[in-house]
Design a protein around this nucleic acid. Structure first.
Lengths: 344, 344
DNA sequence: GATCACTGCTGAATCGAATCAGCAGCATGA
DNA sequence: TCATGCTGCTGATTCGATTCAGCAGTGATC
């Protein structure tokens, strides 16, 4: 049946024949290699317009077979897709990838090394151009086996033994910024709520280090520490007894927004108001921070940007270690110490 | 240099030659088609063991070129990856895909049709085997153009004009369940907080319909409705004036966990306790529900399972409309009405 | 002992692009 | 007039799998 297109897709061969040139010429034109290959402007125009009007799209499976490039990036994560905030990383990464004609292949290991290994195999089989290794919490990792010579960028994590590029939030500077917010409001006695999580998690240690640096630079003694987990429940359970025991902090740094939420609950139970009685600053810059009443000033993890920078570093072959600033998202949770209103 | 492997990957041709058979035979063995093709057990064993010991992995780009199948599923979402809870859908979908040797290609449109179109093009170019169209909120959609004959499963959304398979949470039954929890606790006067969002969002309407059904079945009048948005802030802003105006609900159904959070804030401000003064039930089953004190009983959206079922429906060529049950996650927010303790 | 069916394999084509090596045609200079 | 060099294109091969069609060899049958 002449006139009917036999297959679903238009191939390069069809474009070439309709334009009256060889497949080779059509290929060069459509890959923008007219200059090196000395294709005349007339032919170039002809090929381009035929391709356009025929709706030609190259078959990437065929191209990948030949070029060994797939315009696809593998994202291997532990709990990023499942995480409440970290999943935004995928949004930024996806946008940056799309800007360069790439697409994301995702695999979530759930923290299982065996699953991670299976994911890596699947990705290598599909000839991904590179891999983004991502964690939900800023942490140290070991690069998994099986990646071979694939370029890898670690995002929100880093392998101290590997030379791979990494993109990390500047948690230490974030820690300084958090303390600075309270210091600038006039606070001196600062209490830190939250404790180190697992040893491979960097976030806690670096935030604490930053806070300590800011206090030390201001000539103040180290902050008091209240141990409580990283969770809402843990923070409440850790802070409530302390407050019931009579403690009356004026300025609280919570190591995560979840801790801040638990802290708000414990404070509310005692009738302590934020910020009149207690100023609060926290970390993560998640939506939780805005949901609290008043919303809590939070030092944000730029997940979206981290994903984007990770992809760009991967595609541009960047080698540096990138430290992204953590912006302070202002809420209504910080006030000058003033004179505390006594409740009877 | 004899002995050294020339390329990075072992090819089928190498496996075949080492096993002393043709590429054809090796291919049939490794694709499990020994029965139809009458390959002897001895040859099968030989090929398998050579492939195993050489670490052979088929090049999927080459296979895709021939078979037009890529063992890859495209996931096109609006705000799923960026969403706090909905991103779990990707986890379930990824797991189900991996179980069948598939992998997920994700693209998030942010709700932009132009971006969605670009994503579809990229996915079609990569010969995905099928597409999961996903939304963060249960809603009605229109299938986008450009998918051609690709199988599509809509997850958490549905196109009433299309015949594609869809996987949806049974929001109406969820609504009934929410009301039932309160009715069984002995409540009769139920107030619903939250309002219809955009008309294409089904969740609100169906939840309300389910609640109405349960009340009607119990011979009770329709529930009172308090208009407030879907957000924490909106819920607080809607409920606080109402409570300040003297309203004293005994049982509250919040249309989302966010609304529940805002409701808790408004209730706390008035000194109304959950569940002693007010019983609360909500929807979503998100982590927020567990963070509240006391945790709120919530009718959960099974995001994880929705993703998994969507993938299975796609790969199995299922045609039915799947309605997944919404489990009630018990919290401590419901109690019998009892006698209200008066506060002076 | 020719025909037939069956077993167990293989040769060659194919998918759709990328790319190396080379070939006409024309102008230029010696 | 012929070698030389440039311009502008093309033929043929390659990537690594899948798969159709077919072909030796063996034993059974009449």
């Amino acid at each position: 049946m002449p006139g009917a297109r036999p297959r679903g897709r238009v191939t390069l061969a069809e474009v070439a024949s309709r334009a009256g040139v060889s497949r080779t010429t059509a290929s060069y034109v459509l890959n923008g290699r007219t200059a090196q290959m000395r294709i005349s402007p007339a032919v170039e125009q002809r090929v381009r317009s035929v391709a356009e009007s025929a709706g030609y799209r190259p078959d990437l499976a065929a191209a990948s077979l030949r070029t060994r490039r797939s315009r696809t990036i593998g994202v291997i994560s532990d709990h990023v897709a499942g995480g409440m905030f970290s999943s935004r990383l995928l949004v930024g990464a996806g946008r940056a990838a799309r800007e360069q004609g790439h697409v994301l292949l995702i695999g979530e290991s759930g923290g299982e090394p065996a699953t991670a290994a299976a994911i890596i195999t699947e990705m290598v089989d599909r000839r991904v151009d590179g891999v983004l290794l991502v964690t939900a919490a800023t942490s140290q990792v070991r690069l998994p086996e099986g990646l071979g010579p694939l370029p890898v960028v670690t995002v929100n994590c880093t392998d101290p033994d590997a030379s791979s590029t990494s993109v990390l939030p500047d948690e230490r500077a974030g820690g300084r910024a958090a303390a600075q917010v309270l210091l600038e409001a006039g606070h001196r006695g600062i209490v830190v709520a939250g404790e180190d999580a697992a040893p491979e998690v960097l976030a806690g240690r670096l935030r604490l280090a930053g806070i300590a640096e800011a206090l030390s630079a201001a000539g103040l003694p180290p902050a008091e520490r209240i141990a409580c987990g990283w969770t809402v429940e843990g923070a409440y359970a850790g802070l409530a007894p302390w407050l019931h025991g009579g403690a009356r902090p004026r300025a609280l740094v919570c190591l995560t927004d979840r801790v801040a939420m638990g802290a708000y609950q414990a404070l509310a139970e005692l009738g302590l108001r934020v910020p009149e009685d207690v100023s609060v600053v926290s970390f993560d810059g998640s939506e939780i921070a805005q949901w609290l009443r008043p919303s809590v000033t939070s030092v944000a993890i730029p997940f979206d940007e981290m994903g984007a920078r990770g992809v760009r570093a991967l595609l541009d072959g960047e080698q540096a270690q990138v430290l992204l600033p953590m912006p302070v998202v202002d809420g209504g949770s910080v006030a000058a110490p003033g004179v505390r209103q006594e409740h009877h």
